[in-house]
Design a protein around this nucleic acid. Structure first.
Lengths: 338, 338
DNA sequence: TTTTCTTACTAAAACGATTTAGTTTAGCCT
DNA sequence: AGGCTAAACTAAATCGTTTTAGTAAGAAAA
C-alpha cells in the first residue's frame, strides 16, 4: 500500500487557508505578501508535522526549472571523467542541483539522442565533453533552449562556453623535458583521424616543440591509432610501432588509455622503461605513481575543470547571460621514473 | 530569444482536433481508441513536421513516473563505483530510464538527504550502496514510496533486494592461495569499526580460512584502520603496521584504496613485493596489471552487479512486485606477481 | 421503430505546484 | 460620510500531459 504524498493542499485544508497562502509561506514569500506572522508559523509547523516535501516535478512543470543539470561524457567509467563528474556533482549540489549522467561512447548519434533526452527532461542546463566535429547538429538540437557548457573539448567557432587546458603548451613542456634529458628521437602516439580538439592541440604542441628544438619530425615517428578502433586493435598497432622503431629513445602518449597499451606492449616485447624507452603521457591517474616504473605524466586540474564548468553554467542560468566564456587552465608535469 | 516548445496543443490546433486525440495517437493508443487511420497519420506527420517532443516533466506529473532511477554510491570517482555506474546507465537506458547519480561520501546524514531529494524528484526507483548500519532511517524515509535495490552492501534484515558477491568465500580462497604457497604468517588489513557488510564478511572469511588451515590468528596481525579517517592517517597506520610486523610474509588487504597505501608504505620502507611481503587485495583495477609488481587481486563481476541491480529494480517497477530477491555473485581470483 | 453498438471524436478533470489578479475588512484621512 | 490604503487572504489560471467520462452519428439488431 503506497502512501499518498502530502501535498500543499493537505496543509491548506487542515489549516483552512488557501493553497496560495501555503505556497507563499513555504517559499519564504510570506512577508512580501503580508501574511500574518502567526499564520506563517502555523503553516510552517503543519508542514513539518505532516512531513511535507515539495514535489519537484510539479514545481518543475509550473516554473520551467527542474534544478537538474545534464552531464554528457564519453564514458563515465573513465577515471578522467569520473573524477570530473564528482566535482561537478559537488558544486552542483551546493546550488541545489542534481545531475543526470550520460555516456556517449564517442558516438555522434548517441550524443545527439542524449541531448534530446535531456532537453525533453527539461534539465536547466547541460555540461558536455562533446565527441562531435562541429556544432551544427548541436545548435539544431539545443537551439537556444538552454545553456550549454563544454569542457575538455571545444569547437572552433567558440559558440558555447568552454573549460579546457592548454594542451599545446603542456605537450611542449613534456617534449622539452625529453630534450633536456638528451633525447633526440622522440615518438608520438595519438588517435586519428581525430577532430577532438585536445588531441589536435597535443599534436600541434609536439610538432611545435620539435621544430623549436631543431629536431627533425619524421612522420614515421608519429603513430595515429584509429579513433574508433577496438582497444585490441590499437594495442597491436602500438606493439608494432614500438617494435619497428627501436631507434626511438622516448615517446609521448596522448592519453591515459594509450599509455596503458604502451606499457603492455613494452612488457610483452621484453623491453624496459625507461632504459629502452622513456615515456611521458597526457593524463594522470592515481596508480601511475605505483606502476613499473612510476609513469611521468601531465596532470589536468580535474577539480578546477569541474568547478569552472558548473560556475559558468550557473552564472548563465542566473543572469540569462548569453556571453560565452572560455577558460583555459594550466596543467602540471609530474616527472617520475619513466 | 528562447523558443517556445512545441506542445501537444499546437498539434491539436493546427489539425483542428482535440489534444486528447493527439495524445492517444502519439502514445500508440490510436487503434485501441478507434481513431481513424487517416487522422492518425495526419497527427504523426504533423508531430514530425513541428518536431514535437513530449515534455517529460508534464508527463511525469500526470502519470507519476519520471523514467528516472536514482543511484547513490559512496563516491562516483572510485573506479569500483564508476564502472558499476556505467553498466547501470547502459541497462537503464535500454529500458528508457536515465539516472541521477549521487555520492554519499560514506556519510549517513548525506545519504539520507540524498534519499529525500531523490524521492522529491519522484524518481521511479533507487539503486544504492548504503553506508548505514541498519535500515531504520531508510525505511522511515522511503516507506514503501518506491522500490529500492541495494548492491555491494546489504543489511541483516534483508528487507530490500540486494546484489552482492560472496565476500567470505572470495577472501578464503585468497588465504588458501597464500597457504598453498607456503605462507603461515598472514596479516589482514581492513577498516573498522565497520558495519559495512562486505568488510564484515571479508574479515570473517579471513578468520575462517586461518582456522581451517590450523594457523593461529594473532589479533596483532589484523590491522583495522579508522573507517572515517583521512587517507593520510590511514597511510601512517599501514606503514607502522608493516614496519612492526616484519614476521609477516603475506598480507591481505580488504579493498582497493588500502592496497594503494600498502604499496606506498612498502616503497617508502624500501621493502619489496613479493620478496619481503606477498599481497593479495580485494577489488581489481585495470592498472593493477601494470603496477610494480602486478598485483594479485579478487575481481568482482562489476558488469553483472550493475546488470542485476537494474533488472531487479525494473522487475519490481513493472510488476509492483514486492518480493525481495538476494543475488550473490562469484568473484575471480587473479593471481599475478604480488 | 426503437434500441443497442460501433466508430470517431471531445470536454473537462487531474497531477501539484506557482502566479496573477483579485476580494474583504479595518483603519485612517479629510 | 465617503474615499483611500494597507493588511490578510483567496479564486482561478497556468504549466503540458494523460485519463475519465462522455457525445454524436450512423449501422445493426430487436
Amino acid at each position: 500500500m503506497k502512501k499518498r504524498r502530502v501535498t500543499i493542499n493537505d496543509i491548506a485544508q487542515e489549516l483552512n487557508v488557501s493553497k496560495t497562502l501555503v505556497s507563499m509561506v513555504l517559499n519564504g514569500k510570506g512577508d512580501d505578501n503580508a501574511i500574518n506572522k502567526e499564520t506563517q508559523k502555523k503553516v510552517l509547523d503543519k508542514a513539518k508535522e505532516l512531513n511535507y516535501k515539495p514535489n519537484q516535478v510539479a514545481r518543475g512543470l509550473r516554473t520551467g526549472t527542474t534544478k537538474t543539470i545534464g552531464l554528457i561524457v564519453a564514458d563515465i567509467s573513465n577515471p578522467f571523467f569520473a573524477r570530473i563528474t564528482r566535482t561537478i556533482e559537488n558544486y552542483a549540489e551546493k546550488a541545489g542541483y542534481n545531475i543526470i549522467v550520460c555516456s556517449s561512447d564517442e558516438n555522434d548519434d548517441k550524443e545527439n539522442a542524449l541531448l534530446r533526452t535531456l532537453i525533453n527532461r527539461q534539465v536547466d542546463g547541460i555540461i558536455m565533453s562533446s565527441t562531435q566535429q562541429d556544432t551544427s547538429k548541436i545548435e539544431e538540437i539545443v537551439s537556444d533552449r538552454m545553456p550549454l557548457v563544454l569542457f575538455d573539448r571545444k569547437f572552433e567557432n567558440a559558440k558555447y562556453s568552454s573549460v579546457t587546458v592548454d594542451n599545446c603548451e603542456a605537450t611542449r613542456s613534456a617534449i622539452d623535458h625529453f630534450v633536456s634529458n638528451g633525447h633526440k628521437n622522440i615518438g608520438f602516439i595519438t588517435l586519428a583521424p581525430s577532430h577532438i580538439s585536445p588531441l589536435i592541440d597535443r599534436k600541434r604542441g609536439f610538432i611545435q616543440a620539435m621544430e623549436e628544438q631543431n629536431l627533425t619530425i619524421d612522420s614515421e615517428n608519429i603513430l595515429e591509432l584509429g579513433f574508433y578502433d577496438l582497444k585490441d586493435k590499437q594495442y597491436y598497432q602500438i606493439k608494432d610501432f614500438i617494435e619497428k622503431h627501436q631507434d626511438l629513445t622516448a615517446v609521448f602518449t596522448a592519453n591515459n588509455s594509450i599509455v596503458v597499451g604502451c606499457m603492455e606492449a613494452m612488457n610483452n616485447l621484453g623491453r624496459s622503461i625507461p632504459e629502452d624507452l622513456s615515456i611521458i603521457t597526457f593524463d594522470d591517474v592515481e596508480l601511475f605513481k605505483y606502476t613499473n616504473p612510476p609513469l611521468s605524466s601531465i596532470a589536468q586540474p580535474l577539480e578546477d575543470i569541474g568547478k569552472n564548468s558548473v560556475s559558468i553554467l550557473l552564472n548563465q542560468l542566473k543572469n540569462d547571460n548569453t556571453e560565452t566564456q572560455h577558460i583555459v587552465l594550466n596543467t602540471t608535469l609530474n616527472i617520475r621514473q619513466s
